[in-house]
Design a protein around this nucleic acid. Structure first.
Lengths: 349, 349
DNA sequence: AATCTGACCGAAAACGTTTTCGGTAAATAT
DNA sequence: ATATTTACCGAAAACGTTTTCGGTCAGATT
């Protein structure tokens, strides 16, 4: 029922608690025989140290916190999966919290974590966050923090990112190299930096292949939703009947486009190619299946924890914390919504 | 930098730590004026109690653990979302762990949680778990445990379930009432009880409507995957060309079927109706969108935490723990992969 | 015989909080 | 004047662990 303590073991064995403690921790100034006596009994009584007492002394919990905008997303749950698995390898448990894309919630949840005296925090910023005092304060108070995915360079700490711009470049490039000439881009609300980066990647790809940029080919989805993509399709095709490629900044929008095109009897990819972004689970189940950019959430999570762990150790040894930035490579997952790679195009600049 | 303690406050104010502690907690035997002096200073110094010290005394962490087979699933992440949100309302944080459908992992992760001295555990069993000693032991040692979704009645504790049988009955019934006569069922590996229940629900629905049960109409998907559904479709339609309704035990399989039927140029729902189970996110994005059974993960999570909280309180007051079972209602989400409800059928028995 | 090593163990303090049990002084009641 | 209450505060123990700093005793050295 109630847990065994060092004191109880020591009483039974006629030793002091210090001796018992040291025996269990393998101190060299304990007779090898007493050591085994202690260990044997501890084992038999199923002794596990009281973590509160340990933490009270060591000021460590072996618990870290992760705060994401929204857990119920394939991307974020993949990241958390990576974090949990990597953390477990090193004896850490993970508390999961959500900001629901709210600045106030982000502050609140962060405070909860700090007050719990956990060892470190991993954080993906909410879209609404434009001030970073709450985070810089925490860092200045000595809490190791790692930022991932939704980051800002106004916070000085380790970060894990994907290069959205580069990835969007590749996506657009894929469209170009499979023969698309008039490529529309559906972008999102301008706030998350990722959205802008994807937009920029699209733009630079056009430039690289000497395709003139036409601002009227840029459409905006406010809700990142399936419906947005669906609704925009008619408008796009009416305003620009020559469109033969569409790059949506996020998969659900692309899938909406797929449905919209189907309704208009426009063949994909024969007449119009569609490429998405994020490789949501469902994107391989559509008809045609969706070519998209894979963001390796699991790898991001693992890397983020590794960075945190590094700083956890640095802190314990009183050393200066790292602030390195790790970039996780993305890849274009080629499926059936784009044409198969053709002969040759003019090489990029 | 380093956190303020009661001792420091007491020193500044020329009081004892006990007085400071009591002042902050609103004890009545402290002068109202000293109270406000203490509170004012504590506020100004940003005092937050050291949770380790508190836990060491109170034996409470205000942390609970949740162990699911796999976090990266819409259903489970929805549940966790519900748990986290409900927990937060009551000042609890949530550690998330995964068993990856492995019995050994389940044991291991459970031990991690118990050793961390958290206040309670919420658990969805792995498919491989057939012995329950590891859980019963924990319960007997006084840890409040709540089971949800994948449960067993061999463990005596509160549980949150959906009635898979009833839900599958409704799904099959929907097919029947929209005019289907030859209804196939794709079931899964027999282990998780849910699968069997859905099978039974299918069967009883047929009986209720006087449709003969034909064992050859039962197909099995081993991997719960999109591909399984896709691959089974050809076989089903060849062996039973008269099939006009298919009830798959889980959405991805149903979506695979949708794709398989499309390839065979079979019209959905005109020739064959398809219904899934679980209301995965993508099921509303398919063409046609998938009629399915909604399992309210969020509600399951909330209810499970409420049950746990009840027992947390019971335990604190030394009372006997509840072992009630809460059933969360499901509903059929009618979309485009089944026909619209027709005139009349013979009423169920 | 006196001194010096090791080898082995324990006392005690510390981590920060909470709560019981008095204790003192002032105010009230006898 | 004495006795009793009330209001307010503090000492101390307890939660369980870790670690420093000695301390003892046997055996080895001078």
């Amino acid at each position: 029922m109630s847990k065994v303590t060092l004191k109880e073991i020591s009483k039974i064995l006629g030793l002091s608690t210090s001796t018992v403690s040291k025996a269990l921790k393998g101190y060299t100034d304990i007779n090898i025989e007493t050591k085994s006596r202690v260990r044997e009994l501890a084992n038999r009584l199923n002794y596990t140290p009281n973590v509160f007492a340990q933490s009270l002394r060591s000021r460590e919990t072996k618990i870290i916190g992760i705060l994401v905008p929204d857990l119920v997303h394939h991307f974020f749950s993949s990241i958390i999966n990576g974090v949990i698995q990597e953390a477990e390898k090193h004896g850490y448990l993970v508390i999961v919290l959500q900001s629901h894309e709210s600045y106030e919630d982000e502050i609140k949840q962060l405070k909860l974590l700090v007050d719990k005296n956990i060892d470190g925090i991993m954080l993906s910023l909410s879209d609404k966050t434009v001030k970073y005092d709450h985070i810089n304060t925490i860092i200045n108070e000595g809490m190791p923090v790692v930022l991932f995915d939704k980051i800002t360079h106004l916070i000085d700490c380790p970060k894990v990112v994907i290069d959205d711009r580069k990835a969007a470049f590749s996506a657009t490039e894929h469209l170009i190299r499979t023969g698309c000439k008039t490529i529309a881009h559906i972008t999102g609300p301008l706030k998350p930096k990722t959205t802008i980066d994807r937009y920029m990647g699209y733009k630079t790809a056009l430039e690289a292949y000497d395709i003139p940029f036409d601002k009227s080919l840029i459409y905006t989805s406010e809700n990142l939703s399936f419906d947005d993509g669906y609704n925009l399709t008619a408008q796009m095709m009416e305003e620009h009947p020559t469109i033969d490629g569409i790059f949506a900044f996020i998969d659900p929008v692309a899938i909406g486009v797929l449905k919209g095109l189907k309704e208009q009897k426009i063949k994909v990819p024969k007449q119009v190619s569609v490429i998405g972004f994020s490789n949501w689970f469902m994107s391989k189940t559509t008809t045609p299946s969706l070519t998209t950019v894979d963001q390796p959430g699991y790898e991001i999570g693992r890397s983020a924890f590794k960075l945190l762990l590094k700083n956890l150790n640095q802190k314990r040894e009183g050393k200066v914390l790292t602030t390195e930035i790790v970039e996780i490579p993305t890849s274009v997952v080629i499926r059936k919504s784009t044409k198969s790679i053709p002969v040759e195009t003019s090489a990029p600049v």
